[in-house]
Design a protein around this nucleic acid. Structure first.
Lengths: 180, 180
DNA sequence: GCCATTAGTATCGACTCGCTACTATATCAA
DNA sequence: TTGATATAGTAGCGAGTCGATACTAATGGC
């Protein structure tokens, strides 16, 4: 039987229309998506490999994209002490400002009834979970919903890495995330 | 206030993951999206301009993309008699086959409960309508839901163009569509 | 017949994309 | 300790999208 591509095509079309609006500030849509991920990810999850996994592209492409962001002043490289091979990118002030800019698609969605928004988000999340499971991908959830998260200490503690979290970091995305 | 980009980012991420799977058969994701549109649009709606409007890109880019599809044997050009400037593209057999191929994201969505799928589709459609209205874009609906559609005759009649429709065409997308 | 409009295209520079090949660091085992 | 192997990041290739601009050709109004 012919598969029903209807919803998939709707998602792609919305993303495409959003892309057309994503060229603001000298950025292109991919660079903007990477920037948005960096703003949501914790310090252990901001390497080229991680961003590539999250966005479904390759290390090579993402390496170039991140270097472009640095060149444009939206991000900065930061070599890790623990593993000299890996690099953690972080947003500059300009980068942090760019991700909060208004956006027509976000506005359109925001003006929908709350119940419709909730149903939409739930449907998208379930689709994403299934798609990632089929791909063998990671969940990329937030620390506070993670099985390794210990909320007892001051600003949270990661029992997997044996490290304390920075303030506010329990609300960030982590590559090691495992649903509690 | 900082806008909530959550749902927008989910949509983009799903589209991005889908894109990675969209390289099958020597096509790239954009070429596939154009092919999918051509398979759903009626004979008056398959020009470079129309596909560009539908997918939110420019005539120049879409012109190149459609020529690539012809070069690869998935589509064919067809000059209109009425207006010698415009071109209508149509799918070849290979093109028609390519749009029915299975797809991991479509499968994931298809395996969700019917109620979740319905809510998802409804939320996406409402978002799309608002986004298009904000952009001044067309609705691109199907003939059978159009104010100009007269279902009395054999296979439908377009009262705007004053033309009879081909069999099955009332289920196709039209640029001139106006919600009844 | 003139002129503004429209449809399609060619070309430019920047960039993504998958891919392959390479370097440097890290890890593990004999 | 010394390989052997895996991992992180990158450079470079060819194809092609993308916005932008500048063109040609056909159309339609006046």
């Amino acid at each position: 039987m012919k598969p029903d591509h209807g919803i998939r095509i709707l998602i792609n079309r919305l993303a495409r229309i959003d892309s057309a609006a994503g060229w603001a500030g000298g950025l292109n849509p991919t660079q903007r998506a990477a920037l948005e991920y960096l703003s949501e990810a914790n310090q252990f999850s901001r390497s080229p490999s991680h961003v590539a996994d999250y966005l479904g592209t390759t290390r090579g492409t993402m390496s170039q994209t991140l270097k472009a962001l640095v060149r444009k002043g939206y991000a900065a490289e930061h070599r890790q002490k623990s593993d000299q091979r890996s690099i953690s990118y972080e947003l500059t002030e300009a980068g942090a400002a760019a991700v909060t800019e208004p956006n027509p698609i976000a506005d359109a969605i925001g003006s929908l009834p709350a119940s419709v928004q909730a149903a939409l988000k739930e449907g998208l999340l379930q689709s994403l979970r299934l798609a990632l499971a089929a791909n063998g991908g990671q969940s990329f959830g937030k620390c506070k919903t993670c099985a390794y998260h210990d909320a007892a200490s001051e600003s949270g503690f990661c029992t997997l890495l044996g490290l304390g979290l920075e303030p506010g970091e329990s609300d960030k995305i982590c590559v090691e995330h495992k649903e509690a």
